[in-house]
Design a protein around this nucleic acid. Structure first.
Lengths: 225, 225
DNA sequence: TGGAATCATGACCAAACGGTCACGACAAAA
DNA sequence: TTTTGTCGTGACCGTTTGGTCATGATTCCA
């Protein structure tokens, strides 16, 4: 029930993608609509079957277009995945960067906790605005970085690194227990991701709105100095 | 770099697998050796490329045998995966069941915490004895339950259910905070799994031997009533 | 309005897939 | 030893894959 990888990357030989054309014209509008349709179809199928079990043909059939058209919009499937997760990726990495900066300059304890809270808020936003993309991330981020999964695994590594970095800052502020930094950081990441997955897969968790508060309680009592 | 699923399950038509033959004979011995070789080769490739990106041919080439021989040992790839994770699955589910039983009859607080500790010990054992299988589980358990991944996803659901059940018992004993049970349970599962993955993928975590203690501290301070 | 560029299509290709099978090699029962 | 049945092999089949391309339709710009 699966297909495999081509062993030799044929290395997309020829053309890059042609220019969009005039801005705001019929061409440009169509192009954006079709690209969005392809991304939406792809995301749906990725969630349903897993990235590796979806073919270009499947995606284009679901998007109502012919297979050949795919390569006019995306050079490879990897590029497609990259574009699919881009909005979520940008939001998340910006939140982590901001948190790090805020933590650097935060003088009071309140300001320090506020920096944390902002990350939580962005995660909540992400959950509402890009639920599919988040779920795709959670589903695929641990598998080997092969082919189309590369951008997702990269994002995962980025998140972990930022989490560790932020945790180190927090420990320097002495607002966290002096537990080994990576352990402290990955505990939060792991717990958060598992709860996100439960909410998105509609596992029988209680009231989803209570989750963030419960998690915050756990983290604070468990990690706070 | 991947292969896809056949849409129509051809449904393994004919024969079941033939009998092993006499016990302890050359036939029987060879059979066990070959089956083990296939499983080992498969596990190695699964970890390297992800389950969906590995073909029967790949596995058999790595095991040093011809493709046709595969179906003499395993009816499908799903059955192979099932056998690969079976030892780890049996250990883990037994530990969870035992914990549940122990919690049921544990009168003192010490006895209750001891029941928890036993699960932790089994996880540590698992890490030493079946590291590859555990890593495979962590890599694949969140993806959609398609084809060969089915037994892994099933195990994942089993683990979550037991975790929730055990947490409910612990809350009944009032040794945990009255946080929504699934949230409390999945927090522990998520954090533990993320830390296991870090150790197995040799991410730059501190001293691996300190991890269990640190995690225990976090859990106790965060979850304990 | 008409030439130039871009777009969508579906046939097409070589490679790889899961799965089967006839055949020769080999072990077990006789 | 002979007979009987299993084992391992590699060719083979039908299907699907990522990717290309000639063709005809559509849009752009002048």
């Amino acid at each position: 029930m699966t297909k495999r990888s081509r062993q030799n990357k044929p290395a997309p030989k020829k053309k890059v993608m042609p220019r969009p054309g005039p801005e705001g014209g019929v061409r440009d509008t169509n192009r954006k609509e079709k690209a969005a349709a392809i991304k939406e179809a792809a995301l749906h199928l990725f969630l349903e079957r897993g990235i590796d079990a979806v073919s270009v043909d499947d995606i284009m059939k679901r998007a109502g277009m012919a297979k050949g058209g795919f390569y006019r919009y995306f050079e490879t499937q990897t590029a497609l995945v990259s574009e699919v997760i881009e909005p979520a990726r940008a939001l998340m990495t910006k939140a982590l960067e901001d948190c790090s900066v805020d933590l650097e300059t935060a003088a009071t304890r309140d300001a320090q906790f506020a920096a944390y809270r902002k990350v939580g808020d962005v995660v909540a936003t992400l959950l509402m605005v890009h639920p599919g993309e988040v779920r795709l991330y959670l589903q695929e981020c641990r598998a080997p970085a092969n082919g189309p999964r590369v951008p997702i695994v990269e994002l995962s590594k980025t998140v972990s690194k930022w989490a560790i970095s932020i945790t180190a800052q927090a420990q320097a502020h002495r607002i966290l227990k002096p537990i080994p930094v990576p352990v402290s950081a990955l505990t939060v990441v792991g717990a958060s991701e598992r709860l996100l997955l439960a909410v998105l897969q509609e596992e029988d968790i209680g009231n989803p709105l209570e989750v963030p508060e419960a998690l915050a309680t756990l983290i604070l009592d468990g990690l706070k100095a």
